[in-house]
């Protein structure tokens, strides 16, 4: 089993790219910066399972924490409000790699 690329606390950014088929990265998080809250584990790749493929290699899934104020322009809640979402590793980049 390969090791996860990111660890808890790492700053990450969600890749800002399109994908024509089934994938589990929501539009509103693409290109957004956050930090790893949890390394959930490695799972078969839903982007391949959706087309009856075995879904290998497995992909690491992370719980990523975003600041609400970073996601919504008009967010007027407390500044420490966060949103967490499950994002697969191949959709995450180090923040410096943001396009």
């Amino acid at each position: 089993m390969i090791a996860p690329r990111f660890k808890v606390g790492d700053a990450v950014a969600v890749a800002r790219r399109g994908h024509a088929g089934h994938h589990r990265t929501p539009f509103y998080l693409k290109g957004r910066a956050g930090e790893v809250a949890e390394v959930i584990g490695a799972f078969r790749d839903p982007e391949l399972l959706a087309y009856h493929k075995p879904g290998l290699p497995k992909r690491f899934l992370y719980l990523v924490r975003f600041r609400q104020g970073d996601l919504w322009k008009s967010y007027d809640g407390p500044p420490n409000d966060v949103l967490t979402a499950e994002i697969y590793e191949h959709w995450l980049e180090p923040p410096s790699a943001r396009g």
Partner: peptide
């Protein structure tokens, strides 16, 4: 290779 993201019909978040 890096097509810009497009919102799918189901992808309503936000």
């Amino acid at each position: 290779k890096m097509a810009p993201p497009k919102r799918g019909v189901h992808d309503l978040g936000g």
